[in-house]
Design a protein around this nucleic acid. Structure first.
Lengths: 335, 335
DNA sequence: CTGTTAGCGCGTTCAA
DNA sequence: TTGAACGCGCTAACAG
């Protein structure tokens, strides 16, 4: 593959001149023409590797997500990718496959690759194992989940507010026995979202029944057993609140499998609204996160750090959620 | 950030020794210890950029897919990513967003980045615009779709066989008026899959009614109008065959929206089985592709090319599909 | 087994 | 404005 040296030979100008031309500096008209011809003739493409070695930039950022087949992560990546296009960066995608070990591995890999920045959606809130990667050499932005005892840039949603509003919504519809499929509290979003549920009960002067709280893994296929327990409680819940996409999915699956009529036998409040919910009937009332926005925002912050702008560091951006109303929640009129 | 030179200084051995240590060659026990200490002390990480400049390798491959929010592409990426882990490569993911322009752009970008190889799922079969990127400098493997007039490594499925078997299955169940939601024939998979449908009719000595063939875009949200036409034909089809995930999804959505009972009012044969079909009732009979396998296989071929093994070039690997039986197909007993 | 050194392709001085 | 020369961090070849 042709190098800058080959171009300088063919064009009969010096390497420096070619380099300057490539980087947008002014060169004499005659030389410009000669260089352009040589480039075309040799089909020269600049070697970003060599350039990166010199400029200490790779024009690449890395992202580490727990899964690449989870729609939440995919939309995150879509947001990141589309924003990256604006600044001409490319993206190395890494899946930590929900393994802390792999997460470490991948971050190390990205650092070796000298990416200009890293976006991480951490597996859990435990920062001890990850802490050492947070030297200031490469900027890192956290998404979706924060890490304990690390002050870092991050983009998350108003988690507590999201479930608070959802729970309040259910209470207003007359529900007091509301089951929640919560994540484990060592996961940032699990902890925060449970908090919103508890707050809503407190603000409404209602007592929380702990048997209505089920802790499940935020992973595909998890939670069926817990949902079963919830639904078969002696004193049954009249409504169930799921707190992320995976649990929403599991709830729907369980209820369909067991012929439980959503919105009739039991009310249901979901979390995250992907295609899938389009084809469930009745339509599901859900908390909707601005996922694409989260991705885009994280890139914007990261890019400022890459360019040395640490003015507002550390910045924790919290995005608002919305409620999308469907027909999965029945109003209970008190007798 | 510490360099190999710093390490050699601290460890009091030569640069060469450090380099050899890093690359797995044998160094004297004493030196090994000193080097390891120095590395830990300096928190040294090898600079892959510099290594790449020398070895002309980036240990990175690129993949270009039409979308990063389409489950088919996601599972493809999952397969690629997991296989890449075995050979310690990382992956630059690019979305062409179903735009030929962007597809060109992304390939060019990957070439500039000097990735060691590229995997492409082309948008359509038209190779003219893409042809010039197929110089032998960087190995390319096509997936899912072939390109006209380019001989290249590729991993696809037995497309014609897949729909042939599905159509035969329907015919055996007594269906003769089978509507097909086909892709446009300028897309490799669209063309091949339609062929299977036609072949099955011919082999069964049945006449194909062209009004039962609808051509739709293989993209999210497409096809609702065509499905409507199909279902509202004067002489209605008794069964419908979708030919990819997007059209399967659209069919299900249309039927649910219009309260058409799948497996009762009309039989339905889907294509690709993601989570989503888990929560549709009745369960859908589908053609199942070995998607993860396609991804893994493409990496295996690519890796051999990267290592200079062009023995069986060009290799077009065709993987088999299976039929997953659900309850969406009714048997018609002739009166 | 180790130290020394050239050079990968490029950007960037410094003189001219 | 341009050309020559150095160095980014690393590998590989050679001599020891």
């Amino acid at each position: 593959m042709a190098t800058i040296k080959d171009v300088s030979n063919v064009a009969k100008v010096s390497i420096g001149t070619v380099s300057r031309y490539l980087n947008g500096y002014y060169v004499k008209e005659v030389n410009r023409r000669k260089i352009e011809e040589a480039i075309k003739e040799l089909n020269f493409k600049i070697n970003m590797i060599a350039k990166g070695l010199k400029t200490n930039k790779t024009y690449t950022i890395g992202v580490v997500v727990p899964s690449v087949t989870d729609p939440f992560c995919n939309y995150l990546i879509e947001g990141i990718d589309s924003e990256l296009e604006n600044i001409n960066y490319s993206l190395i995608t890494c899946s930590s496959r929900n393994s802390v070990e792999l997460e470490k591995e991948k971050i190390k890999l990205l650092k070796n690759k000298r990416v200009d920045g890293i976006i991480i959606m951490p597996i859990n809130s435990d920062s001890t194992h990850i802490l050492k990667y947070f030297e200031k050499d490469i900027p890192i932005v956290l998404i979706d989940r924060l890490l304990t005892s690390i002050s870092s840039d991050a983009v998350v949603i108003e988690n507590t507010e999201a479930t608070y509003n959802a729970t309040k919504y259910l209470i207003k519809k007359g529900h007091t026995r509301i089951g929640i499929v919560s994540g484990h509290t060592n996961i940032y979003t699990g902890y925060k979202r449970l908090q919103g549920y508890l707050d809503a009960f407190q603000d409404s002067n209602l007592i929380v029944d702990n048997s209505l709280i089920k802790y499940v893994m935020y992973q595909k296929g998890e939670g069926l057993e817990e949902i079963k327990e919830l639904i078969n409680l002696k004193d049954k819940p009249t409504a169930i609140l799921a707190t992320n996409y995976e649990t929403t999915y599991s709830c729907i699956k369980y209820m369909l499998m067991n012929n439980i009529k959503i919105g009739k036998d039991i009310s249901f409040f979901g979390f995250d609204n992907f295609d899938i919910l389009d084809i469930v009937s009745p339509s599901i009332t859900t908390v909707v996160q601005p996922i694409i926005e989260i991705g885009k925002e994280s890139v914007k912050i990261l890019n400022r750090r890459i360019n040395g702008d640490y003015n507002d560091y550390p910045l924790i951006k919290k995005l608002k959620t919305k409620i999308l109303e469907g027909s999965s929640i029945k109003e209970i009129v008190s007798k």
